[in-house]
Design a protein around this nucleic acid. Structure first.
Length: 365
DNA sequence: AAGTCGGGGGA
DNA sequence: TCCCCAGACTT
């Protein structure tokens, strides 16, 4: 596979499953076949193509890498490890993957799967930090001394990863079916279930947030360009969902609450959306949201300042584009828009009976 | 060395 | 529910 495809797929695959990546990768290649096309792309659209994959800094870095490859390397990926490692988003693992998988070089790589395989194979003991060097040394040594590894480093590396993903699983490894079983020191000592040790995970914090999906008035039938739009704010270039767009929202405890802001803007509340939960690795979002109507088209044409809510830009986006591939939304933002555009079957457009208001988050009590 | 960054799928 | 994942970057 060519270098561009390897870099794109490896960046997508970081902390992400193959099945999830497949469709994204196909769409990506169709949209930007190579480095020059990606380098010329707008970051906004790059993020939009990444929507749902998570870890959005990977997309920003991939875009920056494309620019660097074009401007500093003549459009060709360097083979040198140090030069590759200097590209944004390419760490030790990805450098090894590119050099072995794209260039066929005898370069080692250690990802989560390989680390687990090698840790058991050689019965390495220690915490994550102290094991990093020994793991890479083992991986590099094998590429020097093992015949099959030297003959085909790419296949060797992929085999190691595949072994970890299928047979040498985190829990209940299938040692009976393992081609390494005869050499595995952990298995010989009966330690295959305790090596590597299970790491403790920090509890995720609960966050309460409220969002406002503000819609412009429906079209008057004259094709008014300001009709049927939704207000989106762009998040800062760092932090969670960096650079992505979403309906304006605020977490509980923010200096300016969303309700205050919406009232000050004169938005007319239409209805509440069903409460939804959005789970991240370190945070659990309990999200409430309301649908609001902008007073008139004049409001829509005027500038909206979302900076008090922490956004760096604001935009009235046509609804079709907001859910298309034009705007980089977070998955949460996507879910909010989809919920707001539902025909409100359950909420009865706000005019229904009281039974429609039951889907509130349970009170913490 | 520790914290941060998303999201989905399987046990 | 909990746990894990084809990691990299910042502090």
């Amino acid at each position: 596979m060519d270098g561009y495809s390897v870099v794109v797929s490896e960046l997508m695959l970081q902390q992400t499953r193959v099945d999830t990546v497949l469709d994204y990768f196909k769409r990506w290649k169709a949209r930007w076949p190579g480095w020059p096309e990606l380098a010329a792309a707008e970051l906004d659209e790059v993020l939009a193509q990444w929507t749902g994959l998570g870890y959005y800094n990977r997309a920003r870095n991939l875009h920056r890498t494309a620019i660097a490859v074009v401007q500093q390397h003549g459009g060709q990926l360097p083979h040198d490890a140090a030069q590759l490692g200097a590209l944004p988003g390419l760490g030790p693992y990805t450098v090894g993957a590119v050099r072995s998988l794209a260039f066929g070089l005898p370069a080692a790589l250690v990802d989560g799967n390989v680390a687990r395989v090698l840790t058991r194979w050689h019965a390495l003991v220690g915490d994550g930090g102290t094991l990093i060097k020994p793991l890479w040394q083992k991986a590099e040594l094998e590429l020097e001394v093992s015949g099959p590894a030297r003959a085909d480093p790419a296949s060797w590396n992929q085999a190691l990863m595949e072994l970890g993903a299928t047979v040498c699983s985190p829990r209940k490894p299938q040692c009976a079916a393992c081609p390494v079983a005869q050499h595995c020191l952990a298995l010989a000592q009966g330690l295959q279930d305790s090596i590597p040790p299970v790491k403790q995970r920090a509890a995720s914090a609960e966050v309460q947030a409220h969002y406002a999906v503000v819609l412009s008035p429906a079209s008057s039938g004259l094709g008014d360009p300001l009709a049927d739009r939704v207000l989106l704010g762009q998040r800062p270039p760092t932090g969670r969902w960096a650079g992505l767009w979403e309906p304006p929202g605020a977490e509980q405890g923010d200096p300016q609450t969303l309700q205050q802001w919406a009232k000050a803007q004169g938005w007319q509340p239409l209805r509440d959306l069903p409460a939804l939960q959005h789970v991240l690795t370190h945070r659990k979002y309990a999200v409430t949201a309301g649908v609001y109507a902008a007073a008139d088209l004049g409001t829509v044409s005027a500038e909206v300042d979302l900076q008090p809510l922490g956004y760096v830009a604001a935009r009235w986006q046509p609804l079709g584009q907001a859910l298309g591939a034009v705007t980089g939304l977070s998955r949460l933002g996507q879910r909010l828009l989809e919920a707001a555009l539902q025909p409100a079957a359950e909420d009865g457009q706000g005019s229904g009976p009281a039974t429609t208001k039951r889907r509130r988050p349970p009170s913490p009590a």
